[in-house]
Design a binder for these strands. Structure first.
Lengths: 262, 262
DNA sequence: AGGCGCCATTTTGCATTCATTTTTTATGGA
DNA sequence: TCCATAAAAAATGAATGCAAAATGGCGCCT
């Protein structure tokens, strides 16, 4: 169930020289990550859907590779019917393509599609920011603030994994603070679709972009503090767009970097 | 295929006293509507999915009603397998709820969910406006301008149906002008989900709201003309929000107005 | 020797069938 | 008469079986 790559150990206990809110970085992050991902696994179809989704998201299937029904059936230990239903849903979510009479292929996100998806995520986050400014409580803001400083701690320690997870947690929290379940569901769907790209393409060797992203996050927190909805929306959209540009630049440098297990 | 209620006749030939671009209102609108809706019907599953979607959107099933597999099977003349696959997809799209072992129910959009869906659509349209300002050509703008004046013509004639369809066409065109297929697909999904509400709730007896909406559209066109992306985004979001407020107000006055066939 | 067409195997799409759960109905007791 | 319990009926969830299309391999023709 833990789809994010697990760090070897928590470096939190040696973070004494950081700003004070960052001390509970690992705790804050762990608390967030524990609360999420309540996947519904009532009937077999739902379970297969969830398992297959993570299976694909985690990169077990190459881009554009065939998705063999038969093999997955015996891998999951189910018949073809529920698996085929899951395939249809994943196709509707845009994670795979369903060629008529020719089976399913994992959708290879080309540069254009990555750009598109990131722009949509940017639009959704902009909306989330706007709504969050309308509805967020002071306590909610403070939680994001804590995550922000925790992220800053990871940034100072050059802990990419922790930074990455905090980053995701902040964006997730903003979306949740919007108080719009429909938005959250849509956003999560896109986040899933982009996960393969996001981790691999996230400022792995572009430390200059890393600092820029950190500054953007400062602006995000600042706008959220002032409840400046429209402005926050602009910043979030631009943030996502910069992220996609960086991702694409790296992708061209590093053509096929399979993000198999981090 | 024509899910919008068809007007009895085209009143275009008697529009001499309107602003000149409005004369070809019907032609402009017809040209737009002819170009749309290329549904993929390769295999049986896809066809059933499309048919079932329109079947539900057009209001043949009451809110919260059971979706009887068996009856639909013989209605569409297929076995349960493809129909069930279609149901799973519709559930993923959020159009129906799938209760385990208890069948499917058409999702009843309560006030909260309507608000949520309209806000998301507003966010998507805001994004579309922003992107459209980056990418739209002069020809594309002029097409929207034509539709706008056509809509104005319908507004002056108090032709609600024509106005409504022009309105939809404009929003659709803005989304298309964004040049982002992913965005368009997501937007269309939400538009489908809201269609039942939108027509019924659209300024049917609220002629004051009608004028307000018309003024907002003036502002939309103006911002688009200046390619003011962020501003256009704000306007579009607010426009959708006002629309949802009006929709909800009317819905409370008119508790269960089934929009069956206009 | 290389390209083209034909046949076998595999895979996909769909219908049918079986098992489990829910819903309805009928019956008995209070 | 009303409620509770239980059996029958219906509907859902999943598996299997069958027809059609595609993929791969082979021989044949040029």
């Amino acid at each position: 169930m833990n789809s994010a790559p697990a760090p070897a150990s928590t470096p939190a206990d040696s973070l004494d020289d950081l700003p004070s809110p960052a001390q509970d970085a690992a705790a804050t992050l762990a608390a967030f990550e524990a609360s999420g991902s309540g996947g519904q696994a009532k009937n077999l179809h739902g379970e297969v859907l969830a398992r297959l989704r993570t299976y694909i998201v985690e990169g077990n299937l190459a881009d554009g590779a065939r998705v063999p029904e038969r093999q997955l059936c015996e891998l999951f230990g189910v018949s073809r019917t529920p698996l085929r239903e899951a395939l249809k849903v994943l196709a509707a979510e845009g994670m795979i393509d369903l060629l008529p009479n020719r089976g399913a292929r994992v959708r290879a996100l080309g540069p254009d599609e990555i750009r598109e998806a990131f722009d949509v995520m940017g639009g959704l986050e902009a909306l989330a920011g706007r709504l969050a400014c309308e509805r967020i409580t002071e306590a909610g803001f403070e939680e994001i603030e804590r995550l922000h400083y925790a992220m800053y701690g990871f940034y100072l320690r050059r802990d990419l994994s922790g930074y990455f997870r905090c980053n995701q947690a902040i964006h997730q929290k903003i979306v949740e603070a919007a108080g719009n379940a429909t938005l959250k569901a849509t956003y999560d769907s896109f986040a899933n679709r982009c996960r393969r790209v996001r981790y691999a393409a996230n400022l792995d060797r572009q430390h200059d972009r890393w600092g820029e992203a950190m500054r953007e996050h400062e602006a995000i927190l600042e706008a959220l503090r002032r409840r400046a909805g429209s402005e926050l929306g602009d910043i979030l959209f631009q943030h996502l767009r910069n992220k996609s540009v960086a991702a694409l630049e790296q992708k061209t440098q590093d053509p096929e970097s399979a993000p198999a297990a981090g």
